[in-house]
Design a protein around this nucleic acid. Structure first.
Length: 719
DNA sequence: GCAAGGTC
């Protein structure tokens, strides 16, 4: 008897193998892929692992114009960056050859069910469920795993179909509509522009466009704040706060002149601040953004590295819980080997009870350190690691206490007040160095005191439009709306930047992004809102509980998408025109001395961006850009060109590297050789990073090389 | 070239 257990990921496979038998032997396939063998009296068990999806949907006919005929193919054949999945597939194929029982032990959710099913079907060659059983567990603890192993259930094919349909629907809508948008631009402008739309990315962009529109249409309203300056160190606010009635503001201002303040009441309150809750992925991303300014994607990558290194736990979790089975004591003992950590750990209460959050996750606990101390980490990795460690420590700490005093004053008969607060007991705040502690001075003031008013101020202000999203607050919004998943949200936002739909840390929507949403609202409104996700969920649920079939759902979707594509096609010249013009608009970085627009351009040859004039070829001016350069909203006081920011640490400079210097230098032409690409003269030029050699017929010919490379060229041509 | 979803 030979049993095969297929798990979703290596870490889960290890836990499952260890839970089933203490006599498990860990082995390696091809030196890379781990698998586990258990030998019992009359049965052998081999525990194998996938690495997430091993198979992916792909068009049967990749050359067709639209994709409605899809099939599953190995991921390593489709995506070059996923080559590592090949060994996992091969290992499953090899060790399952002589097996007679197959156990599906992937995460108990829709994607997990599909991952295991595809592995069993395509790698193990199981075309029926006759020899397949399913383990159902909600955590990867020994008791849960053993319980699942001893009480296996049948594989639910409705769930498999439901998961499969989700992939098909996303492909139908996403890939086909994206392709048709790009096709429109090609038809209208004979240009290639990378465009995309999808069930998650488009509503996400739409959220940003809505905010952008709110900001644009916002009309600021004036209001007044009346403040009283007392004793040189007290600023008291009028009780009404924002006063929109100018007359009322003037009335208070006049009335309070040359009056003393009577202390009407002094109220002291103490509030308790609970420790923070353990990190889930979103929480970690948000905190790392706030504390270090790391993008959610960067944080996710670092967290993945720390997990692979064995220093922290599985990062793609939505859990804010730390179950007891983690053995906190053991982790703290190990962390205490680090002297800094020890200082904080020794103050922990003897009974360890974490302050947990509400969110749960079926497969993983909250992010926590494993206790294994890293020796070599990059600066950024160390930052995230310490953030995780100190957060872990602080959730076990005591509450902190905050003391605040509110003092009510009467000036004339107008009510004013001021507040002061300080931390009266540090508790967890002493062990979480990433939280600032604000301690304000308390004053010795009692009810009935009279204080001299030095000055009454009336400040005119304006109401402000709603704030722009940043990457962290956008992720929170997506979590709230249940758009995307914990593992994909950061990637989706990065994609919107990459497509040039949005820009800036405080996210602004570019013309292209706005136009794309406008276009899609006209042709498939559902795609621009959460409606499509909700709609998918309903249909997929129908498949899960046998109210409809995968075939029916997929056929319906095909009809819908075909109708949308038909509409887009009819208007493609107009759509393409507008999209490309919008794209051009968002590339403008400044004004050229010839009166044209300076626009960002890309040189495929040099694989780099540069700035050129919209009047090219009449105006041939170009500016090279240093790596990672961004444009500031400032212009150079000397020449009016935009100011760029570049380098590490960031420095600011005029777009023209020769600005302020002897400008003629740039145009001094000294022939130094012959261009190997076009045969014209090669000339010496000077750029931001020093001198180089370029072709005289630039920008028609974009050949460049360094002075050293020129010497090599000369010696070669002599031979 | 295109989606969204898993994971090293």
């Amino acid at each position: 008897m030979h049993e095969i257990i297929i798990c979703e990921k290596p870490k889960a496979a290890e836990k499952i193998a260890q839970a089933i038998s203490p006599n498990v032997k860990k082995r390696k396939y091809n030196k890379k892929v781990s698998y586990w063998e258990i030998e019992e009296e009359n049965k052998k068990i081999t525990v194998l692992s996938a690495v997430g999806h091993l198979y992916s949907l792909t068009p049967v006919n990749p050359k067709s114009k639209v994709f409605f005929d899809l099939e599953w193919a190995p991921l390593y054949e489709i995506d070059k960056t996923k080559k590592y999945t090949r060994d996992y597939v091969y290992a499953i194929k090899k060790f399952s050859k002589d097996a007679d029982k197959f156990i599906h032990a992937c995460d108990y959710d829709i994607e997990g069910t599909l991952i295991g099913y595809n592995a069993l079907k395509y790698a193990c060659g199981q075309n029926t469920t006759a020899n397949i059983s399913r383990m159902k567990f909600s955590t990867l603890t020994k008791t849960d795993i053993l319980d699942a192993y001893n009480n296996m259930i049948d594989l639910d094919l409705h769930q498999v179909e439901s998961g499969s349909a989700r992939h098909v629907l996303d492909f139908y809508f996403g890939v086909n509509i994206s392709k048709s948008l790009m096709h429109s631009v090609r038809t209208a402008k004979k240009r290639f522009l990378k465009l995309s739309a999808g069930r998650v990315q488009t509503p996400t962009l739409s959220i940003l466009v809505d905010r952008e529109k709110q900001i644009k249409k916002f009309i600021p309203k004036p209001y007044w704040l009346i403040k009283a300056l007392l004793n040189g160190e007290i600023i008291a606010d009028h009780e009404d706060g924002k006063i929109f009635d100018k007359k009322r503001a003037e009335e208070i201002f006049d009335k309070c002149q040359n009056q003393n303040a009577l202390v009407d009441e002094v109220k002291k309150t103490e509030t308790i601040r609970k420790p923070p809750v353990p990190f889930n992925l979103g929480g970690l991303q948000s905190e790392a953004y706030g504390v270090f300014g790391f993008s959610p994607k960067k944080t996710q990558m670092i967290a993945q590295n720390l997990y692979t290194g064995g220093f922290t736990s599985y990062p793609r979790t939505s859990s804010q819980k730390l179950p007891k089975s983690l053995e906190y004591k053991k982790i703290f003992m190990q962390l205490s080997k680090n002297a800094e950590f020890k200082k904080h750990i020794q103050d922990l209460p003897s009974e360890l009870k974490p302050n947990e959050g509400k969110k749960k996750d079926a497969a993983h606990p909250a992010i926590h350190p494993t206790g294994v101390l890293p020796d070599k980490l990059s600066k950024d990795e160390l930052k995230i690691y310490e953030l995780i460690v100190y957060r872990f420590i602080s959730v076990f700490c005591e509450n902190s206490k905050l003391e605040s005093v509110k003092t009510d004053l009467l000036i004339a008969d107008e009510k004013f007040n001021f507040k002061r607060k300080r931390v009266s007991y540090l508790g967890w705040l002493a062990h979480y160095p990433f939280k600032k502690i604000e301690n304000e001075n308390f004053l010795d003031i009692k009810k009935g005191d009279i204080i001299k008013v030095e000055k009454i101020c009336s400040e005119q202000k304006e109401t402000k439009p709603p704030a722009r999203y940043n990457e962290a607050s956008l992720i929170k919004e997506l979590e709230k709306r249940e758009l995307g998943t914990k593992a994909t949200r950061a990637d989706i936002i990065a994609k919107l930047y990459d497509r040039k739909y949005i820009s800036g840390k405080k996210i602004e929507v570019n013309q292209l992004g706005e136009n794309l949403i406008d276009t899609l609202k006209e042709y498939c409104e559902d795609l621009t809102s959460e409606d499509l996700t909700r709609d998918f969920e309903k249909r997929l649920e129908g498949i899960s509980n046998d109210k409809t079939t995968q075939e029916a759902v997929v056929n319906d979707a095909e009809k819908e998408v075909k109708a949308i594509l038909g509409d887009i096609n009819k208007n493609e010249a107009d759509i393409g025109d507008k999209l490309y013009d919008a794209y051009q608009q968002s590339r403008i970085v400044g004004e050229c001395s010839c009166g044209g627009n300076l626009v960002m351009k890309y040189s495929p040859r040099n694989k780099s961006h540069f700035v050129g004039c919209s009047n090219y070829p009449e105006c041939e001016i170009t500016y090279s850009l240093p790596k990672g350069a961004t444009f500031l909203k400032k212009t150079c006081p000397k020449c009016g060109l935009p100011i760029i920011s570049f380098g590490k640490p960031r420095q600011h400079a005029c777009l023209d590297p020769n600005c302020g210097k002897d400008n003629t230098k740039r145009h001094v032409v000294k022939v130094v050789g012959v261009c190997p690409d076009c045969g014209k003269d090669l000339v010496k030029r000077s750029g931001r990073y020093g001198d180089f050699v370029g072709c005289k017929s630039f920008p028609k010919c974009r050949f460049t090389c360094s002075l050293e490379e020129l010497k090599d060229l000369e010696s070669k041509s002599k031979k």
